[in-house]
């Protein structure tokens, strides 16, 4: 019994269908409870009710980065061990990651407007997220552009590797570029730190909820991709007679 058994699509389909209801229920429970709890938290003495945006902004930003890391791991597994489920999981995760990045950017902009007096600031953190979004777009576009599924998996895998290096590089380059113009850390919310317990626990619950939601969506979307692949394979066999 090893984790590589899940590289077998049949095994993956069986196991994922068994655990999917539980994960989905967990996601609904955590996300629902966390969001309601977060929405009912009292106002912050400085930020007023805008602190409630944090319960969406921080988990979304966290997932945006984590999903890319997951895609990197899945791409590596595909490139090294050629497990199809891994490549399909990376493909399935990308749109979710892109949506998370959009949520983080939009809520950040809406939050920034009353707090900093501007929708957008070329702050290192914000800029790095915009660049991450561009990487997501390129990755998704490349998947849809290549016809042969194995070639697409290979090319996007290589792109994911290179993109990861350059995403990190850009993060530090951007820091360098706007150093001294902006007092960086005071504007950012470091998750869990310097946050009052009143907000901390609902925030943790929301993070868990976002994570479970991602796992749910990932499982469903990977199952979709496996079914599509099987449909295409069967059709191809029919054509050949």
């Amino acid at each position: 019994m090893s984790i590589w058994e899940y590289a077998n699509p049949v095994k993956f389909m069986r196991t994922s269908s068994a655990i999917l209801p539980w994960v989905a229920a967990g996601a609904a429970l955590c996300l629902g409870a966390g969001l309601v709890w977060g929405f009912l938290t009292p106002q912050d003495y400085k930020q007023g009710s805008t602190v409630k945006i944090m319960f969406l902004h921080v988990p979304a930003a966290m997932m945006a980065i984590n999903i890319w890391v997951m895609m990197l791991a899945a791409s590596l597994i595909w490139l090294i061990r050629r497990h199809h489920v891994s490549a399909l999981a990376a493909k399935a995760a990308a749109p979710v990651g892109a949506v998370m990045t959009v949520i983080a950017l939009l809520t950040g902009a809406i939050w920034g407007q009353p707090m900093w007096g501007t929708w957008w600031e070329w702050d290192p953190r914000l800029t790095a997220f915009l660049i991450l979004f561009l990487f997501y777009l390129g990755y998704i576009a490349l998947w849809s552009a290549v016809d042969n599924p194995d070639s697409a998996a290979d090319l996007t895998g290589v792109l994911c590797l290179v993109g990861s290096v350059f995403a990190v590089l850009s993060r530090y380059a951007v820091n360098f570029w706007n150093q001294g113009l902006h007092q960086g850390a005071s504007l950012s919310v470091k998750a869990g730190e310097r946050v009052d317990p009143t907000y901390k626990y609902p925030l943790y619950l929301c993070m868990l909820g976002f994570f479970l939601l991602f796992v749910t969506l990932l499982l469903i979307r990977t199952r979709t991709e496996i079914r599509r692949r099987r449909t295409a394979a069967l059709l191809a066999r029919e054509v050949r007679g």
């Binding site: 660049i131 561009l134 990487f135 777009l137 390129g138 576009a141 490349l142 552009a145 290549v146 792109l159 290179v162 993109g163 350059f166 590089l169 850009s170 380059a173 951007v174 360098f176 570029w177």
Partner: peptide, 23 residues
């Protein structure tokens, strides 16, 4: 090997140019 590869290539390459451009 792609049809309409040029446009896609810009989308892939330009984010990679960010650090070079900044420095």
């Amino acid at each position: 090997g792609l049809r309409r590869g040029g446009l896609l290539m810009s989308l892939l390459v330009l984010p990679l140019y960010v650090p070079t451009l900044i420095f």
